[in-house]
Nucleic acid binder design. Structure first.
Lengths: 224, 224, 224, 224
DNA sequence: GATGAATGAGGATTCATTCAT
DNA sequence: AATGAATGAATCCTCATTCAT
C-alpha cells in the first residue's frame, strides 16, 4: 500500500529518504521469505532479522503482516502483470505473437524469480488467501492470452474447448520453471535460473508455441 | 473442502480395527488440509476439528505433526509414484508410450487430487522441507520419463538439451492442472477436477504429446 | 460462559473436578483484579500469577480475556441481580418495603464487595464496554425499584420527575459505599467494609429511606 | 465525545501562544479520554489522534503519560476543589448552608463533567494510583463538608456516627450523577447532563438536604 | 514545535506437545 | 484410545518512549 507501485529496480535518479530505503529493504526480505516459505511459513521475526531491524519497526512501514504481504504482491506482481497487459494490448492490432509474449514474460519473471513462486503460493492456497489483486489480474490476463491464442493462425488444429487448457498449460510451464528450479538444482545440479538456463527455457517456450500453434508461415523469430 | 473426494477410496477388502479407522480419518483430514494450506498453514487444531476428535488424540496415532505430515506424504505420494514406476517398468521392454504414461498419471492423481497439491507445496518450499522420500522418488521418475521421451520416435526435432525442459514442461502441465483447479473454478466457474474436466485434460495431454512428439506412424490411440 | 451460574460460595456437596476448581480460582482472581484495576488495567499475566498458573492455561478455561471478564461479571453480578429481582417480585403483592430491599442489596454486596466495584467500572466506562448483560439487567432493576418507590406511601412529597433521581441517588449511595471504602480507610483509618461498617451503612440506608419516604405509619424495622 | 463541553471554558482574557494552545488541546482530549476509559484504557495514540497530531508531539508538551494524566487531574480537579474550598471558607463565618454548597459543586462540575468521572476512576482504582493531589484535597473537603453538616440545625436527628456516612452519601449522589449519565442516556434516553437534567438534579439535591437536614426555619431558598 | 523511524517491554493469543486420568 | 489440563515457545501486535531531523 504505502509502497505503492515502487518499481523493482532502484530508480536511481531520485534521492531516497531513509525510511523509504527501509521500507524497500523490508519488501525485499519479505518477498524472498514469502516466496520461499509462503505466508504462514514466514514470520515477522524472520523478516525483521533479514532486514536487520527489530520487529516493531516493521510496523512503522506496514500496518500488519497481511498488509506487508499485500505490498509485496503488489510491488512484485503488479508491474509484471501491468507490463504484460500493456504488451498484450499494444499488440492487439497486429498479429498476435505468442512466442514473443512468452519471451516478455520470461524476461520479467527472470528479473525477480521470487514473483513466480509467490504467485504459485497464491495459486496453491487458492480461494482462501488469493489476494483480490491477483483475482483482479488473473481474469484479464487469462482472457487476453486466450484471445491471443484463439486469433493465432495455427489454432485450428485445437478443439475450441481445449484452448483454455492450452492457455493454462503455458501458464504452468512458465511458472513451473521458476518453482522447480531449486529442487532441480538439488537433483540434477543444473541451475534453471542461470542466464543459460533461462535462455534455454525461453528458446524452449518459443519452439513449444511454434510446434503447438504452427503458423504455416515463415517462422517469426524474435528480433526486438 | 476441495478434498471432498478424500474419503473416496476405502480399500474395502481388509477389515479395519477401530483405531486404524481413526488413524485413516486423521490422514484423510490432514491430507486435505496440508494440500490446501501447506505444512505451516495447517494446525493440529484444524486437523482435530476436521476429524471430530481432540488434539491430544492425534498423538495416539502419530508422534508429531512432522510425522503426521510424513505419513500423509507417504500414504499419498508413495502409492502414486510406485504405481507409476511399476507401470513405467512394465512398459520398459516395449516401445515407450508417453501419452499413455500421462494418461496413467492423470488417472492416479485424479483419484487423489490432494496429492498433486501436496507435491506442489513440497516443490515450492523446496530444498528446506523437501521430504527425502520425494527426493528419492523424483530422480527415478524423471529419469525414466526422460528415457521414455528420448526413445520416442518424434524426438528428433528437439535439441537434446531441451529434452529435460520438455519433461519438466509435461510435469508442470500435469500437476498444474490440479493446483489451479480451485482458483479456476473461482474465476471461470469451470471445475477442472470434474469427470469431464479430467477427461478433457487427459485428451489434451494426449494431443499435446502427439503434437510435440509426432510419431509419423498410425498408432496414437490408447487401446489398453 | 463456561462457568455458567456457578454460585458464589462453594456448593460443598458436589465433588469438584480439578479443572472446575481451577476455573473458579481464575474467576476469583480475575474478579478481584478487574474490580481493582478495571478491564484494561488488568493483565492476564496478573491473573495467571494470582492463580499460580501459566498464562496459556487460562485459555483452557476461558477463550479470551473478554470472555473471562464476561464470566466474572456473570458469576458476580448475575446472582446479585437475580436475587434482587426475585426479592422485588416476591414483595410485589405486599406493600413495598424499600428499606428492606436496600438491606437485602447490602447483604448481597457485602459478601462480595468486588461486585460493586465491577459494576462501577462498567458504569464508568459506560456505553463502550457496558456488557449487554448489565444493560439487560439495569433496566428491569431500575424500573422495579422505581415502581417500588412510586408505590411508597411517603412518595407524595416528591415531584414525580424527581423519582428517577431518587432511585439513582439510592443506587449511588449503595454502590459508592463499596467504591470508596479503600480510599476512606486510607484517609480516615475507618474500614467501611468491616462488619461494623456495613452494619452502620445498612442502618444508615434504613434511616435514609425512612426520612426520604416517611410512611406516616409506625416505622417498619427490619425483623427478618 | 461526552466532553463536548470540554473546550467550553477558554479563559479568554489572556492571549495564547500557539504551543500553549496545543498543550491545552492535548489536555482537553486527554481529559475526555481518561474520563471515559481510565488511565490504562487510554493510549497516547488515542490522545494524539484526538488532537490531530502525531504521538511524539505530545512529548513536546508533557514529559510522559503519567505527567499528562497528572496535568489533566490538576487542571481539572484543582480549580474545582479550590473554588470549593474558597467558597467553603468564605462561608465559614456565617451559618453553613449545605444545600448551597451542593449547588455550588454542581455548578462547578456541570461545567466540566469529565472531572467527576476522572475522580471516580481515581477513587475506584483507589490506593494504587490515587494521586497525592486527590489525597491532599479529599481530606479538607470532607472535613469541611462534615463541619458544615455537623453545624447544621437539623442534624440532631442523626446519630453522630452516621454523619460521615451522610457526607459520603451526598458525595456519591453528586458524583454518581455524572458517572451514570452516559449509561442512563443509553437506557432511558434521558440526558442527565442537559441543562434541564442538571437543573433537576440541583433542585433534587436541595430537597434532599432539606429533607435530611430540616432547618425548622424559613430560610431555604438560594438568594445569591 | 513537529514528526518519521526505531525499539524494549509487554499485551493477548496460538501452537505443538506432554501427562495424568 | 481419548481427553482435560498444563505449558514453553513463539506469534502478531501495541505501547510508551526516544532521538535525529
Amino acid at each position: 500500500m504505502e509502497s505503492g507501485l515502487a518499481s523493482a529496480s532502484p530508480p536511481a535518479g531520485r534521492p531516497r529518504r531513509k525510511g523509504e530505503r527501509t521500507a524497500e529493504r523490508i519488501l525485499d526480505t519479505a518477498e524472498s521469505l514469502f516466496a520461499a516459505h509462503g505466508y504462514s511459513g514466514t514470520t515477522l521475526r524472520d523478516v525483521a532479522e533479514g532486514v536487520g531491524v527489530r520487529i516493531p519497526s516493521l510496523y512503522n512501514h506496514f500496518p500488519s503482516k497481511e498488509a506487508l504481504y499485500a505490498a509485496v504482491l503488489e510491488r512484485g506482481i503488479g508491474p509484471v502483470l501491468s507490463a504484460l497487459l500493456e504488451y498484450v494490448d499494444s499488440r492487439a492490432q497486429g498479429r498476435p505473437d505468442t512466442a514473443r509474449l512468452l519471451d516478455r514474460i520470461m524476461q520479467l519473471l527472470a528479473r525477480r524469480p521470487d514473483i513466480a513462486r509467490l504467485v504459485q503460493h497464491e495459486t496453491l492456497t487458492g480461494g482462501e488467501r488469493l489476494s483480490p489483486m491477483l483475482r483482479d489480474w488473473f481474469l484479464p490476463i487469462f482472457s487476453r492470452a486466450r484471445d491471443s491464442i484463439e486469433a493465432h493462425p495455427g489454432v485450428d488444429q485445437w478443439d475450441p474447448e481445449q484452448i483454455p487448457l492450452l492457455v493454462l498449460a503455458l501458464y504452468h510451464v512458465v511458472l513451473g520453471h521458476f518453482t522447480i528450479a531449486p529442487v532441480w538444482r538439488d537433483l540434477e545440479g543444473d541451475d534453471l535460473l542461470s542466464t543459460d538456463g533461462l535462455a534455454r527455457q525461453t528458446r524452449f517456450l518459443g519452439e513449444l508455441v511454434t510446434t503447438l500453434l504452427p503458423e504455416h508461415s515463415p517462422r517469426t523469430t524474435s528480433q526486438e
